[in-house]
Design a protein around this nucleic acid. Structure first.
Lengths: 343, 343
DNA sequence: CGGTGTTCCGTAAACGTTTACGGATGATGC
DNA sequence: GCATCATCCGTAAACGTTTACGGAACACCG
């Protein structure tokens, strides 16, 4: 069902039908109603290729979504929830969200180039930003509207939104300090992960501000799977002066920490305080309930959608758009009770 | 950078450039090389709108992905891993995978109509198929190429792939029977979930085949969140003759089951056997390790990709394509040891 | 009644590709 | 040397839409 067929059916010209359906100026109310009614009745929907060929834009925003390549592993459900809010916000503005999955074992720059070439969207959303990210450079160089979820090492000259890891760490550490802990261990991923250096820096600052000496033996940087975190915990406990609290910047890491503590006959939350970073389903299954942080993913998606719409509206005027930090919320569990006996 | 610009740059006609880049017949090797080299050098990528307007097809497959609408909840990471295999398979055939998220609180039929109208893909992949699914009917009626991941109550006349729940249940029940259990409880979601009736039916058959009487008080049908599963477990344990084994058709349900057992001083895997359905991260965090089932998600994605390519190739000849059942694999843990004392 | 607007609609030219068709060129066979 | 043929390339018509432009019809005002 073309626009031509619709026009013939209505004894109107193609142009009039198009105007009636789109801009709605220069067309009488009577015919507009007639056209809209007939379009609905005949099931006419404008061909997207023709439309976006003629106009310069597609009415869609593309989200480059990293997915796992391995067979057994699950992906990060974080993004899935984010997509709900993002899609809702874009939908309200008449935009469509399309997601382009890219596997971790793919050349992501090449993938982005191909996707850009398809010209499938008016704006682009990048995730899992690296400290030095060629995709950000590519999009900046081509002056294409995009938003980065995450930030590079030099986060200026492009719009980004990132989680406020600084707030996360300082909240966790000051909470533990407030509970009387003085030896607080830190488990955080390798420095190739963008936020890890922020984590370490903020951790050091927070201790310093409180006048608590920082012991490098209490900092573990590396693989943050459950087993690696268990090993790290055992390493902490082997020290002459073991920590009384452990902050774990990892999704499934707290599971390993709990296991290692129990392996030594220690009870999380009673003998050693534990605070995790995110309320993943696996961490919510722990007993005693893990004190950790959550993110308003829906709101986060909506904020990203809003930024994307801004960026696509202000085409070619990317100035003055600052980066945004998105807060974590503390979810109090029972794993970080103060352990006064150790102070 | 148009094809016109490229042609002018090469002193060739537009048609020749197009042929050189596409079909590659009727063009000499020398010029073809020259064109390809120049296209790469000038960064030319054919405009997708123009291309798919002229040809009837887009070279893409669309995956209608259900995402959560609530703010706190995470989505199902199941699909994320599936997308990796799907994308790889399609990529190898020169197809692109685009994902269209649809929120659970949206009118999914209306959303599908809009998406179809955009004509953005050559084939469609549906997920979370309902027992009576209007989307399947819509796509069938319009003769559009699609594949259903899941199946309706009457799974014929369209290509589908579904998980083999029957195999899952019969494997679990016969395993428990083989371990000597005679009173096996079942926790399964409400009958609005498509596979739940299959689960119950197969459970009954398996018991009947083994000559074990089926006690309806050992079947719980309803909400399968952790707390609901804990309540169901407590209900089982309140019986005069409580079960010695529990099969939980739920993702996070085993967490609640473990908690309820421990609340009564019972040790999972020692006092009561527990088998779960899926190896979600939350279940893998349990101690003792949960015996459950896993799915080769990558292979599943590739199988879906293969079916999609078949469907898009055999346009208008949808006959003879049977449904496919995808197997579960048992992952032995330590939660289903035989409890001979109770037999 | 002429002039000036306003309202509504048709005309046609784009947007960037692909592809059927034909023509030019050169090679080959007789 | 002429006919035949293969090889390569240019021409132009589509694909379905949007939109600038102009024109027809009509109202209004002096």
């Amino acid at each position: 069902m073309n626009i031509r067929g619709l026009a013939q059916h209505l004894n109107l010209s193609i142009g009039t039908v198009s105007r009636a359906l789109n801009d709605a100026s220069d067309v009488s109310d009577a015919t507009r109603r007639r056209v809209i009614e007939a379009a609905a009745r005949l099931g006419y929907t404008p061909n997207q290729s023709g439309r976006s060929l003629r106009r310069g834009r597609t009415g869609a925003v593309a989200f480059i979504l990293p997915v796992t390549a391995e067979s057994g592993a699950y992906g990060d459900p974080f993004f899935l929830s984010l997509m709900g809010g993002l899609q809702r916000h874009l939908e309200q503005a008449g935009y469509e969200l399309i997601v382009l999955p890219v596997r971790h074992d793919q050349d992501e720059l090449e993938h982005l180039r191909r996707s850009l070439g398809r010209g499938i969207a008016d704006a682009w959303l990048l995730a899992e930003i690296k400290r030095h990210d060629e995709r950000v450079e590519l999009l900046s160089a081509r002056q294409l509207p995009f938003v980065a979820f995450g930030r590079t090492g030099n986060p200026s000259g492009y719009p980004w939104l990132d989680l406020d890891f600084q707030q996360l760490i300082s909240t966790a550490v000051s909470r533990l300090l407030g509970q009387g802990h003085r030896r607080i261990a830190l488990i955080t991923p390798g420095l190739d992960v963008n936020f890890s250096s922020i984590v370490i820096g903020t951790y050091r600052e927070a201790l310093e501000d409180a006048g608590v000496p920082c012991d490098d033996r209490l900092i573990y940087v590396g693989d943050i799977g459950p087993t690696a975190c268990a090993a790290a915990t055992n390493g902490f406990l082997d020290l002459n002066d073991p920590p009384s609290a452990i902050f774990v910047m990892s999704e499934n890491g707290p599971i390993g920490v709990y296991a290692a503590l129990r392996g030594r006959g220690l009870q999380p939350g009673t003998d050693v305080a534990v605070i995790g970073s995110r309320n993943t389903p696996s961490c919510m299954a722990l007993d005693p309930p893990l004190t950790c942080f959550s993110v308003d993913l829906h709101g986060l998606g909506e904020a990203l959608g809003s930024m994307l719409l801004d960026v696509v509206a202000a085409d070619g005027a990317p100035e003055g758009r600052p980066g945004l930090l998105w807060p974590f919320r503390l979810r109090q569990g029972a794993s970080d009770l103060p352990d006064d006996s150790k102070c």
